[in-house]
């Protein structure tokens, strides 16, 4: 019974992923948009583990997104690695190692210091990409010519097929992350989020748990970066920017921290605001202002984002209990 119930969410996710391009199509978008949202959703799974489950607010996740993307892209463009999967895996691994190094330094501090340090370290990556490494990364021009995915002789050559490939990877990433947060390891992370002092006093090595969470988040970011190259065929240098790091945080908070699907929802809102509002002449250029206002409103009043709000509503609707007073 428990096993059957445990399969409901992954099944629902599978159905959703199949239907998603069509849903996006109804709303006037294309399969490219759907793929872009999934890539950000995968990126966001790591951010959610970090912020939503462990309470670590990193403003430097773009560093790992870019690292994973450029490593995988470079290997594929220059045919150094023949297999898409292997290139993605190497990109992911390099991003994870980068995460381990940055994390081991930034996690010596907490709270605002941690956020400031992650931001500063990601700038280091940005400038490395832009100047000393530009022979490899294309500097301000980025890396064009990333080939489409090919796995066991199957070519994912059209946009639809590429979407399918990305959806499969997202699905695996989602199921794995569900498993991680439900594990004893994941329980300790949640304890650290809730009360790090007590978690340490209980005998947990808080620093190491945080470091592993940070590394896993970097790996997810790196994998997502690799996928971006696959469907765009091009890796832009702005993958490394502060704006990119901020963007994924905004998506996480708008969607709902600690829900796993939050970043996916946040990415959908973000991409839609930018694409749909942009086509409405007079206010088109104001889409990001609207987004900023929504973001500030959400943090101020609805700390749990869209997904969190919906799940609270559903729980209360089921129990028919009066709404609890927010603890803030």
């Amino acid at each position: 019974m428990a096993r059957a119930r445990g399969a409901i969410v992954p099944l629902a996710m599978l159905v959703f992923l199949v239907a998603f391009p069509t849903l996006v199509g109804f709303a006037g978008g294309g399969v490219t948009l759907a793929a872009r949202i999934l890539v950000l959703g995968l990126f966001g799974l790591g951010v959610d583990l970090l912020f939503g489950f462990t309470g670590l607010l990193s403003f430097g996740q773009a560093a790992f997104y870019g690292t994973g993307g450029f490593v995988a892209g470079y290997l594929l463009i220059h045919h150094i690695v023949p297999s898409t999967i292997l290139a993605l895996a190497i990109g992911m691994l390099v991003a994870a190692v980068a995460g381990l190094v940055v994390g081991s330094l930034a996690l010596r501090q907490v709270g605002v210091y941690f956020a400031m340090l992650t931001l500063a370290f990601s700038q280091l990556f940005y400038f490395l990409d832009n100047s000393p490494l530009r022979e490899l990364t294309g500097g301000e021009n980025g890396l064009p010519g990333v080939p489409r995915a090919e796995v066991f002789g199957i070519h994912f050559s059209s946009l639809q097929e590429t979407y399918a490939f990305i959806a499969i990877v997202y699905f695996i990433g989602f199921v794995v992350m569900r498993r991680i947060v439900a594990s004893p390891f994941g329980h300790v992370l949640r304890a650290i989020l809730d009360n790090p002092i007590r978690a340490a006093a209980a005998g947990h090595d808080v620093y190491r748990y945080k470091l592993v969470a940070f590394t896993i988040a970097a790996a997810y970011a790196g994998l997502a970066g690799g996928l971006l190259g696959l469907f765009q065929g091009y890796l832009p240098p702005d993958m490394f920017t502060i704006d990119q790091s901020g963007q994924i945080i905004v998506m996480e908070v708008i969607g709902g921290p600690g829900t796993l699907v939050g970043p996916l929802i946040g990415a959908t809102v973000w991409i839609y605001l930018s694409q749909v509002l942009q086509n409405i002449g007079a206010i088109g250029s104001l889409w990001k202002l609207v987004l900023g206002l929504v973001f500030v409103l959400l943090i101020t009043g609805f700390r749990r984002g869209i997904a969190g709000g919906v799940s609270t509503f559903l729980q209360q609707w089921q129990r028919r209990e009066p709404a609890p007073v927010p603890s803030e």
Binding site: F51, G55, L57, F59, G111, V112, A115, G246, I249, V250, V253, G292, F295, V296, I299, T300, R303
Partner: peptide, 9 residues
Amino acid sequence: EDQILVTYG
């Protein structure tokens, strides 16, 4: 974290 987020917004 909330303070950082709101000033970022």
